[in-house]
Amino acid sequence: MENLGWGVMMMVVGMGVVFALLAVLMGVLMLIGRLDRPPREPGEDATPAPAPVPSAQAAPAPVAPTVRIVADGLSEDDVAAIAVAVMTHAENRRRLAGPETRRHAPGSQLFASRWLAVGRAQSHSSFTRR
Rank of each mutant, 00 (worst) to 15 (best):
A51Y: 06
V18Y: 05
A56K: 01
A23K: 10
G107M: 10
M10G: 08
P62F: 03
V13G: 10
R102P: 05
R40I: 05
P62S: 04
G14V: 13
A80T: 03
A105G: 08
V13L: 15
P62H: 02
D78F: 00
S125F: 08
A80C: 00
S126E: 12
R130C: 13
A117G: 03
A23V: 06
A49G: 12
R93N: 15
A81N: 00
H104L: 06
S108C: 07
E2I: 05
S123W: 10
A97D: 15
E91R: 08
A90R: 07
I32V: 15
H89P: 00
R93F: 08
A105C: 05
R94G: 09
I82L: 04
A80H: 06
G119V: 03
F19I: 05
G107W: 10
L4C: 03
L29R: 11
G33F: 00
L22I: 02
V86N: 01
D36S: 07
A97Y: 07
E44V: 04
R102A: 13
V13Q: 10
S75Q: 12
M87Q: 15
R114M: 08
S75Y: 10
V67I: 15
L110D: 14
I69D: 07
H89T: 02
S75P: 09
A85Q: 14
P106G: 11
L74E: 07
M30I: 12
R120V: 04
R94E: 12
P52G: 01
Q57A: 00
A20C: 03
A81V: 01
V12P: 06
G7A: 11
G33E: 08
Q122S: 07
V70D: 11
A58Q: 00
G5M: 11
F111K: 09
A105S: 08
G33W: 02
V79L: 05
D72F: 01
L21T: 06
A49E: 08
G5S: 07
L74S: 03
G98C: 09
T88E: 09
S126C: 07
V12N: 04
S113D: 13
V13K: 06
R95V: 10
N3Q: 14
A71S: 13
Q109P: 02
